[in-house]
Design a protein around this nucleic acid. Structure first.
Length: 256
DNA sequence: ATGTCAACGATGCGTTGA
């Protein structure tokens, strides 16, 4: 069973790439982020024609998350996180597929820092951690997959100095992410590539892709029962090099 | 600081958010 997280950076702009990915890789579950689409303009028919059921939580212009499942419709469990009723960003969608809880997560970027966007990021991590604890306490098999906008370790980036002042690498961002993992989750990519050096994102600017100047911000966190089923985890890096690519590459786990 | 991209409101291009 292959579960993917893929920040598409605009599902309408990326539709051809996404459908191509589904056809070539046949993943069982796909968590999408940055749909940049309202609910009404989500390309449901094209996804269905590709053989996937979908649940989506869109927003006009930016944000937006979805869960796709091959040959079936995911069952929605929750959209949005508790704790901040005035927060209308579409960044969290939790579904059930084949008895597995799968959440698509788009954690706030947090730049510029310092400022309200960074403060929002840190509060959002706390709210995610609260939800994650509920899932662990319920002992449901779960995968929290998405764009966390956190570079967890120094060996998760091509350059520490280049990223040092970025919200993605601040000690507060890392503390929040590590506290989440420390609840009992397994960072799947890290467990399969413990020495780091694996990137999931390459900026469009400054020839980052050509220089392999990337970093790792797309993560799949596995609950204990799911971690026992982990066979492999990696990045479908080649898709970042195609025409009209997203700045993120699909990142995945394979479970027994 | 930036050699970029997508959506938006509006219809040629500046603003926003990455």
């Amino acid at each position: 069973m292959k579960i993917v997280t893929y920040n598409v950076n605009g599902i309408k702009a990326r539709l051809e790439r996404l459908v191509e990915y589904l056809a070539e890789q046949q993943p069982d579950v796909v968590c999408l982020q940055e749909l940049k689409s309202s609910d009404e303009t989500f390309p449901e028919a094209a996804i269905r024609d590709a053989g996937y059921g979908a649940v989506w939580h869109g927003q006009k212009g930016f944000n937006g998350v979805a869960v796709l499942a091959r040959g079936q419709d995911p069952i929605e469990r929750q959209r949005g996180l508790e704790g901040e009723p005035e927060d209308n960003h579409s960044r969290y969608l939790e579904c059930e597929v084949d008895g597995l809880v799968v959440a698509s997560i788009y954690l706030p970027n947090g730049n510029p820092r310092p400022g309200p966007k960074f403060d929002y990021k840190l509060r959002w991590i706390d709210r995610l951690r609260a939800r994650a604890q509920v899932l662990l306490d319920a002992e449901v098999p779960a995968v929290l997959a998405g764009d966390y906008n956190v570079i967890p370790n120094d060996d998760d980036t091509f350059s520490v100095p280049a990223m040092a002042s970025d919200a993605l690498m601040q000690p507060e961002s890392r503390r929040g992410y590590r506290a989440l993992v420390a609840q009992g989750w397994t960072d799947a990519l890290r467990s399969r590539h413990p020495r780091g050096g694996v990137w999931t994102f390459w900026d469009y600017q400054a020839g980052a892709w050509q220089r392999d100047a990337g970093f790792r911000i797309d993560h799949l966190l596995l609950s204990p029962a799911v971690a026992d089923r982990l066979q492999d985890a990696d990045v479908d890096k080649a898709y970042r090099g195609r025409e009209k690519a997203s700045d993120h590459a699909p990142t995945w786990v394979r479970l027994s």
